[in-house]
Design a protein around this nucleic acid. Sequence first.
DNA 1: ATTACAAATTAGCGCGCGTAAATTTTATTT
DNA 2: AAATAAAATTTACGCGCGCTAATTTGTAAT
Lengths: 343, 343
Amino acid sequence: MGQPKIRNMEEFANISGISRPTVSKYFNNPESVRTSTRAKIEAALKRYDYQPNVFAMNQNRRTTKNIGVVVPNLADPFFSEIGRRVELACIDAGYSPILLSSHGSPEMERDNLTSLRALKPAGVLLAPFGRMSDVEAVQTFDADFPLVLFDANMSSIGQAFVGTDNAQSVDLMVEYLCRSGEAPCFFEMKSPTNPNANKRRQAYIDSMERHGHVPRIYQADGEGWNFEEIGKVEGGRLLAAKSFETKTILCSNDRLAIGMLSAAYDLGLRVGHGPECDLRIAGHDDHPFSKFTCPPLTTIAQDYEAIANRAVRELFSTLEAENQTKDRSETTFDGRLVMRESA
Amino acid sequence: MGQPKIRNMEEFANISGISRPTVSKYFNNPESVRTSTRAKIEAALKRYDYQPNVFAMNQNRRTTKNIGVVVPNLADPFFSEIGRRVELACIDAGYSPILLSSHGSPEMERDNLTSLRALKPAGVLLAPFGRMSDVEAVQTFDADFPLVLFDANMSSIGQAFVGTDNAQSVDLMVEYLCRSGEAPCFFEMKSPTNPNANKRRQAYIDSMERHGHVPRIYQADGEGWNFEEIGKVEGGRLLAAKSFETKTILCSNDRLAIGMLSAAYDLGLRVGHGPECDLRIAGHDDHPFSKFTCPPLTTIAQDYEAIANRAVRELFSTLEAENQTKDRSETTFDGRLVMRESA
DNA sequence: ATTACAAATTAGCGCGCGTAAATTTTATTT
DNA sequence: AAATAAAATTTACGCGCGCTAATTTGTAAT
């Protein structure tokens, strides 16, 4: 990093002894220039800290190196974790991820897509709200930019979908709970914001029937993203009123389960699979905190890493395919049973 | 939103019956044009969905409408929450926030500052690692861009610092714990990543001495951001060995406390302030999950909203001051005692 | 109606880089 | 050594808007 400030690519080209168009080629793809030329440029880069002006770069390009990453709510550790991995995978591939949270609001999801348009992204990875999303807006966006969905699916939208196989994962949990004790009843929100919730309910019903049990579903009132609060208040109410017909409860997700564990504690109910316990509670997602609940939560771990990497790969393969019409793909990964003390 | 695509500002200016420079003025500040002109432009905007090319806009401007927001780790709910509020405050002010997480790595913090340079941000809000940060890099950045620090302070860096008054907040907690029972001992990490940890330790010592008690500090081994794990393993070890000299433990932050609560549960220790309890545990930060721990965690609530808003305000006042030399300001907000069952 | 001032217009340069076509240089093959 | 292909260079234009200076138009006050 030398002293003299490089003002533009022209100056840098002169200094490195290479013509400007070739330097431009280098920055767009270092592999595209001869090894000896590359060496010269990189030698100059060591001595002077020049980097091309992003704004000028992107102005005349039809597509940039930007990748939009939109998640419904970064305050939810699930999304901050998967968003994080997606972000890092993009950086590794030499792209510039732009991570946007919709803060729990479908309107902001729409706004986020709108602002992304201005950045001419090479592609976008979207974890949509689903039915709550502005479907038309997402469709229009899909028509204009390469789009890959993850976590939540929307039929026929995007070049690909990557997520977890809820049928498999819920069946795995039901199977385990039945094998190790009583068949579970199911606790969820009445109006879930996430389409996975519906898949999980259906998976629960199917699985219970397959095992010869009657499915029993309990739905909590409540809106928004305060899942723990809803789980605690509504779950606690059901527990106090002894409304659950079985002593084994499968929650639609870990955050509800965390709330219910808190309610059970308040009520003096011992949660766990020991003979002295009053209740078994299980969740779904392996939330970062589930390991530290009291007792630690038995749950299904989603394969964050695989989902994030695959989603990014799907997007890049779409980018490479370019004009060839590629079929829409759906990939789901298996959930993994994480046995802890709560069930 | 009409059919014909507007290609550039020239076309849009023709359609709206206004000259291009005036349209340009409008987009840079709608207030700067006459009411009647503004009305004409906005009427045209209703019919045609034109928006200026961001890249062309920012190319010749010395400073953009971008605001960088850098936090050490978005996976930590504390930072995702405060980052969220900062982000929204910037949007309200008509700026484009760019939220970057350093994923727990000081090197990535440096990289984030470097990539921000390319975006010519109007200003940057940084929650630094502190001593772990690349101090020189932060200083250099400070010299080149308006910079406001929040959460963690670094001496003489940035136009302002906004955070919580650890001396006040810890004293408040110590005072409460002493008044309601036994004086606390203090549990923290041996090599904390955050400078607030040091301030809290010192605040604990001062407060204890002021109250006529002997401070007792217990430090956990362990690196990284897995605070809950460290709290559970190391805290659990100390609990099992009955190493704590008192039955009241103040943890340096909620995440450590959450881990320790989990360990206490495993050991069959009853945590709380009732006569039948074995242990009191308190935290600091009012982590979003502290309300749902077993038992719910007594802690200090930081005023997220106030910190975020003030940090943003400090930055904007710096932007407006422009060349006038403004003194560096430090603002700390009081913590609020949140009494729950754990202590 | 005249004046004074603010706002809009016209005209035009420049930003830093992408990109294309034509040409020259370099590397590889026969 | 000559022929061929590949890479680099030269030349030149364009992107969309910021910004300025000089001029004209519009508005409000006298």
